[in-house]
Every structure is written in structure tokens, then in C-alpha cells.
Amino acid sequence: MSNTVTAGDRPGRTSRSGRGGVPSASGIALRQARRRKKLEWIAVHSVGLAIAVAFLLPFVFLFLTSVMSDSQALTSTLWPQHWVWSNYTAVFRVHGFGTWWRNTIEYAVLGTVLTVVSSVPVAYALAKFRFPGRRLAMMLVISMMMLPPQVIIIPMYLFWAKQLHLDGTLWPLIIPMAFGDAFSIFLLRQFLLTIPKEYLDAARVDGCGEVRTLLRVVLPMARPAISAVALFQFFYCWNDYFGPQIYSSDNPAAWTLSYGLQSFHGAHQTNWNLTMAATLLVMAPVIVVFFFAQKAFIEGVTLTGVKG
């Protein structure tokens, strides 16, 4: 958990400012400064702890409710009288739950793979090739990235549903990812900009074509950015609600977890215990993936805002 990029990785930075006083400082001043530091330490850590508890408590309450009995979940008591672990198996027995998992995994995995494969060459070209109109291309990529999905949903829906009859499936959401995803292109390009030109030139001198340069030199160096993009896209697909609501909601066999969870709540409206168990189960994979890929993730977020 501690292997992330932050203060810990750059020990010199933050502590330097407090490294002892100026030569003329007296011993008393030094002691005062130490005491102030100690107080500051306590203040910072107790505020941090309070906020951390507030951030984690919702998960605790959700969990406690998820193991309550049906009738207790409708009261406002906090602690389960009986621990009803069978709520979790009950959720899995709900008609369709397995299908939602399968669909969500299919959507997320296919979507991620297609996005990475289609976005890397585009990002590479935008970062390293010189060609007329590349500034315009970059502006368009940013515009696409910022475009609210609702802006183009009507023609897109009519296109997929009425022309291609692909409504009731997840294909209208997966297929576009084979044609580059603006956010991924943007993020990869920002990273690729930082690769020194000399590496690429060296590869080219060795007689590599652009494709081989990309595969042999760029890809290995861009691993962190690619994993960040893959993670973002995976989470995007996993969390997507609007897309499945528009395209696949009329066919229960194509529901995803996000859409299914909402309808699950509808069908078991105030069976809060089952709803909370399902909710936690939907959250679980995301959290597990996060723990394995924390570093790539946080680097990716940083890249979106800070670099460039």
C-alpha cells in the first residue's frame, strides 16, 4: 500500500523547509520550533484521521446493513442482530445477476483492449510526427474528450438501433472503442511527449520503420501510461450507466452490473440488506483492481492534470 508516488518517494522535498533554523537561531527558538512541529503533527494527523473515518464509515454501514435480516434492515439500528451471511448467496441467486457480471466483464475487457490497441498509434502520431494540421487534430481530440455523451446520443442511438439493429446488445458501446478513445489518446500523448526524441532517432537509425519503432521502443517505455489508460477505460466501462441504459436496457440478457443494480433495487425496492450486498459486490472488483494497480492509477490521474 505504501509503494505509491507521493511525499514518501521524495523525502527531501517537504521536510527540507523545517530542517533546523538559521545559524543565528538560539536554543530556545529551536525548542519552540520543535514544539510547534509536534503540535502541527498532532493536528494534521487528527484532522486526517477524522476525515479518513468519515470517508470509510459509509462502507462500514453498507457492509453492516448487508448482513442484516430483511426486517432489521428496515429499522434504523446500526448493528446486525443476526449476521445473515446468506444475503450474499441470495444475491447471486437473483435471476440475471450472473449474466450482468458476464456482460460487464465482456464490456470492460473488450472495451479496454480495443481502446488501447486503437489509441496508442494515434497518440504516438500526435506526439511525435510532424504533419500539417496536428494542432487542429489535437484540438479536436480535446473537444471529443470534453463532449458530453448526451449531445450525440439521439443520432447515435438511431444509427445503432434503426440502421444496424444492434440495440439490446452492448456492441454500440464496444465497437466505437476500436476507433480510438479521445481521453486515452490525450493521456497517452501527454506521456509520449516526455520520451526523448533521441531514443526514437536511434531506433530509426537502426533501420526500424515507424511501426517497429512503436512496438520495440515506444511501447516498453510507455508501459505506465498504457496501464493507466487501460485502468481508466476498464473502470469507465465497469461504471458506465448511461450507455447500457440507452442501448441494452430493453434486453435483460444484455444488462450490465450498473444497470442491473439499479433495476435490482427497483425489484427489491426496500430490501435494503440485499440491495447493499449487491452494491458492495459491484464495488468489490474495482477496489481489488485498485489495490493491485494503485501506482499506475495515481500516476495516470497525475498525468491528466499536471503534465503538459
Binding site: 500500500m1 505504501s2 505509491t4 507521493t6 511525499a7 514518501g8 517537504t14 502541527e40 503533527w41 494534521v44 494527523h45 484532522v47 486526517g48 476525515i51 479518513a52 470517508f55 470509510l56 459509509p58 462502507f59 453498507l62 473502470f235 465497469w238 461504471n239 450507466y241 452490473l257 450498473s258 444497470y259 443494480l261 439499479q262 433495487h265 440491495t275 447493499m276 452494491t279 458492495l280 459491484v282 464495488m283 474495482v286 477496489i287 485498485f290 494503485q294 495515481i298
Partner: peptide, 30 residues
């Protein structure tokens, strides 16, 4: 706050970051 925290920085970062990852539908129902 997080840049000032010296002890248990990993724990705090995770605690502050985790809710962001909760899928919106799940987080909202919760």
C-alpha cells in the same frame, strides 16, 4: 493535508481515494 502527513501516509491516501472508485450507481444507492 496528505502532503503534511508523515505517518501512515499510505493508509490515508487509500482512505481518501477509495470512495472515488466506487461505481456511481453503487455509490449513489449506498
Amino acid at each position: 493535508l496528505i502532503t503534511k502527513i508523515k505517518s501512515g501516509a499510505g493508509f490515508f491516501r487509500t482512505a481518501f481515494y477509495l470512495p472515488y472508485l466506487a461505481p456511481p450507481v453503487a455509490a449513489t444507492i449506498g
